[in-house]
Design a protein around this nucleic acid. Sequence first.
DNA 1: CATTCTAGTCAGGGCTCTTGCCTAGAAGGG
DNA 2: CCCTTCTAGGCAAGAGCCCTGACTAGAATG
Lengths: 368, 368
Amino acid sequence: MRHRLLTRAELSTETGISKPTAGESVRRLTEAGLVVDTGRRTPGGRGRGRVGSYYSLAPDVGTALAVSVAPEGVVAECVDAYGNLVARVEEPVGRPARPDDVATALGRAVDRVRELVEARQEADFAGDRGDRGDRGELGPAGRLRLDAWPRLAVVSAADPVDRHTGRLLQLPDAPFLLGEIDPVAVLAGRVAGTVLVDNDVNWAAEAERAAAPMDDFAFVYLDEGLGCAIVSDGEVRRGHRGVAGEVAHLVTVGPGGRAMPLIEVFGLLGLRHGRSTAIDVDRLLEERPPEVVTAVGGLVAALATLIDPEVVVIGGRWGTPLSDVIAEEVSRSPRPVPVRAASVKNEPSLAGARAQALDMLRALIVGR
Amino acid sequence: MRHRLLTRAELSTETGISKPTAGESVRRLTEAGLVVDTGRRTPGGRGRGRVGSYYSLAPDVGTALAVSVAPEGVVAECVDAYGNLVARVEEPVGRPARPDDVATALGRAVDRVRELVEARQEADFAGDRGDRGDRGELGPAGRLRLDAWPRLAVVSAADPVDRHTGRLLQLPDAPFLLGEIDPVAVLAGRVAGTVLVDNDVNWAAEAERAAAPMDDFAFVYLDEGLGCAIVSDGEVRRGHRGVAGEVAHLVTVGPGGRAMPLIEVFGLLGLRHGRSTAIDVDRLLEERPPEVVTAVGGLVAALATLIDPEVVVIGGRWGTPLSDVIAEEVSRSPRPVPVRAASVKNEPSLAGARAQALDMLRALIVGR
DNA sequence: CATTCTAGTCAGGGCTCTTGCCTAGAAGGG
DNA sequence: CCCTTCTAGGCAAGAGCCCTGACTAGAATG
């Protein structure tokens, strides 16, 4: 998976397994249909010895789906076992997002991804036939009609997710952006295997961890919704129901030193959108009220005492630009903790979901 | 380890390994000195077949130490691989506990445990010789002079512990009961292998988990000091430095709805001992001020939002009796979470440390 | 005293791995 | 131009650990 193309001798040195065993393993894997002789041979130019045969994963080991579901719309990506992006579809949703619209967009995005994958396989098939035909070397792989269905899906949703059912959860006093949709039900008929759903913030934290490996940190996401992911001992910890880090209701320091839930601070400051429960990010960024910084400082302090993170990473549309001020606020507290802005800027949740999808696909291919 | 005494045939059915292989394994284990033929034979009375030979762990696989270090004093226990208590010593410390006194008590307790273990081995040795002599069957095990040194130690300390060094840490605004002692240094010359030190609350949570298996819960310990252990996905999570759950400084709801650190509430209510930073438990239990219940409610609410526990377990000298009132307070909050009193009443921290010591000893014996 | 039952052993064989050596086939130098 | 050198890959033999099935040892029972 890491090298894409290897001879048996290379596999032997790479893995430390002896040559005969590596050769025999490749034979068994080929027989099982997991590995194919690509027909390619080692170039004469490299070294002088005998030419080797390049093997690779069979083209039909399958693909995985990574999907991001947010109020703006749905993004669905299909990756293969090498981590290549095979297809990508963006499906916008009109604002305000109604649950039904989101669910349909999700279904449509995945359907369109499958069409793209099919088209691409068709093209590869034709190309393969052409190539091989020229060299008179049509491998068995070229003859297969491939299955375009992803073997699994990993979904990132911009709302709390029930760990066991995969359904989105409305928590009291928390913004609920997408509504009661059930991604597992929507994808059940569109994916061959598991559908894993989790909160976008948890996936973003996963991406952050991949970018800068850390065992213990907290990822605070400050956008229209408020979220937080907790990574302990190298894993995202989701809690019993899966709603660990749903910080909207955490008691913090409000205006005038009063104790109040974090989300209430925004209400008091008139920073919540009139009709929905979401935060008015544009206005917040204009006004940058110090009360908000103090309140977030309280959240970070609570994380520091309860989780003891190495660092608190701040992301989100208003969290990232305010991270400096928050860091300063926290540095003045009696238990300071390093605070920094998120390092993954581009679609962090999707990146995390994609990495997870790739991991799971590889495990599925390798595992028993 | 679970059965103490088994024949090769029993080992075979118990493990699912075939009889010849089980027999061969026992031969290898005996050769390696891990297992011995006890000389005992299956009683004629049970079944009719041929008599079998009972094998057991070799008597020299070693023991492990579990130690609890608290302001009242030190308790040291020695357990064998079966989980038997081999020796126990209690070493009181005069109050107020001075760091030097605690360190000496720790060393003395461990020394006395070793003396007890040695005495007991001497007795066993004599007994063995007597028994076997009568039956003319002196096994090779009886001849060994055993090593009384524990192979590892697990220490529970009533203060925050640095995860990497094992030293006790003074955190700002938190009670510091034992002082800057370094259990690893004290035990280095008294234990053959690893010395693992952790906070008493974490060990108590471990004991709680053993009593009622739960994957995600928080354990709040309310005594002279304030502590909290966080169990996520079946493991105690210690955080980066190891001070996760040091809640004394957590911002909560103080008198008059003001946001303030938890420990400050006790200061305002005059519930801290004059000279030390510890809480005056007796007075607290007399007065049972509602402000304390509200403040603890804030702590539980913070745990509920950040950790999403299945239940919050409350222990400690004043936490246990107040757990009902706290549960009621929490049930009125917008995010209620089940709250109950701790179920392990008897030396919970030592019980947790003992279980860990046993686990590690067994891993040491089995592992490579 | 033959039968029955259990503990333990023996023989043979399978699977997967190893090492050591051999063959195939290309490149390069005298 | 041929021989040497080098790499890919295959073959043979054997180690290690496991299995199944059949056998032996030795006690209790009727």
